[in-house]
Amino acid sequence: MSAFGITRASRAHAGFVAAIVHRVSGLALAIFLPLHFLSLGLAFEQEAFDGFIAWANNPLVKVSEALLVAALTVHFAGGLRLLAVEFFGLTRAQAVWIACAFAFGIGAGLLFLLRAF
C-alpha cells in the first residue's frame, strides 16, 4: 500500500495533483510554522537586536525559511485554485490554468528571492 493510499491510476490528473501539492505544502507549513514562530520568539527574548541579526544570518535558518516561503507560495496558489472553483464557479480547465499561472508567477518571485542568498 502506498503512503496514505495516494497512488491509483485514477488519480493521474491535474486536479488531484494540485490538491495533493496543496495538502502536502499545508502540512509542511503546519510543521515549520511553529519552528518559525519559536525561533523568532526566542531570538527576541534573549537580546532583541543582536539576537535577531545572529538568528537571521544562521544558514540553517536561511534554508528552512526559504523552504517555508516555498511552501507558502505553493499553498497559496493551490488555495487560489480551490477558492476559484468553490466560490467563483470556474470550470475545471480555467481553474487549473489559473493555478498554473499563479504557480508560475510566484515561482518566478521565489527564484528572485532565492538569488538574495
Binding site: H13, F16, L82, E86
Partner: peptide
C-alpha cells in the same frame, strides 16, 4: 477537497 476526480 475539490480534487475533481469525480468530474474527471
Amino acid at each position: 477537497h475539490t480534487h475533481q476526480s469525480c468530474a474527471e
